[in-house]
């Protein structure tokens, strides 16, 4: 892979972010709103619930970690959508840039924007509501890694869907995290789900992360085996997403969809 070409994909996003406050603001704004909203909800729940249980790490922490996953996904898809919106796909795919270089550029852009968001999230939640990710112990490190990898996988798969179905398919991608969240046991244990939902929950790497972090906040031990499974599973999803993107790109080249992308002709 040519690092200069990957750098070009990142540089394009840096130029866009540098010259456009409307692109910078959403990196922090929604996170700040979520911290405020869920911070006050958890503070209120702490006053009415039985003493001894702290809703801050259990709920506010869970919300923010899910937000982190969503931001990672959006970091990747936003970088891709910039090329869709500016009708730049033909120039990109008719260049010597390889698929792997392009996707790597999108992912690295996603890393930069989501790490910025994560930093703001941690600072706000800690200063305003006393949330410390340290309360999750060392499990937070593999936990964040799993959420990050799964977020990247969702972003790459989402970009592939838009590449295949056309610009209007964007609306299918934005709500993906919301669609998955009931299955990912963000706020409740997998055991509380009905039987038919539980296999789906266990197919999603974030479920293992949230189960483990919940156990830690309630005084239990981190399930390292579960986190290892989640890591393996998320890597599997990432590989599948990359293969899906490559497949979709191949189909688009065979059918000429890249050359007439705005026509949104699914043939």
């Amino acid at each position: 892979m040519n690092m200069r070409r990957i750098g070009a994909i990142m540089l394009r996003q840096i130029y866009l972010l540098r010259g456009s406050p409307t692109r910078v603001l959403p990196l922090f704004a929604w996170i700040a709103i979520d911290v405020m909203l869920w911070g006050f909800i958890t503070r209120y729940l702490n006053t009415i619930a039985s003493p001894g249980f702290d809703f801050v790490p259990a709920m506010l922490g869970a919300v923010l970690l899910w937000d982190f996953l969503s931001r990672v996904m959006q970091g990747v898809t936003m970088a891709f959508f910039e090329d869709v919106w500016s009708r730049n796909l033909l120039a990109i795919f008719a260049s010597p840039l390889s698929r792997a270089e392009y996707v790597t550029g999108l992912v690295l852009t996603g890393i930069c924007t989501s790490v910025l968001g994560l930093a703001v999230m941690i600072a706000l939640a800690s200063l305003a509501f006393g949330l410390s990710f340290l309360s999750y112990g060392m499990a937070i490190i593999p936990g964040l890694l799993v959420l990050f990898i799964f977020g990247v996988a969702l972003g790459v798969a989402g970009s592939a869907m838009v590449l295949r179905l056309g610009p209007a398919a964007e609306w299918l991608i934005w709500p993906l995290p919301a669609v998955l969240s009931p299955f990912a046991s963000v706020f409740y244990p997998v055991a509380s789900l009905p039987g038919w939902m539980q296999p789906l929950a266990y197919a999603l790497p974030p479920s293992y992360v949230f189960e483990t972090l919940r156990a830690v906040t309630q005084g239990g031990q981190a399930d390292h085996m579960a986190l290892g499974q989640a890591l393996g599973l998320s890597l599997l999803y990432l590989a599948a997403a990359a293969a899906f993107f490559a497949h979709v790109h191949g189909v688009c080249v065979r059918n000429g969809l890249i050359a007439r992308y705005s026509a949104e002709s699914v043939t």
């Binding site: 040519n2 200069r4 070409r5 750098g7 070009a8 394009r12 260049s95 010597p96 840039l97």
Partner: peptide, 12 residues
């Protein structure tokens, strides 16, 4: 200039 720099890097 930004466009030319980005594509110049893509074309190495």
């Amino acid at each position: 200039v930004q466009n030319l720099r980005v594509f110049g890097m893509i074309y190495d």
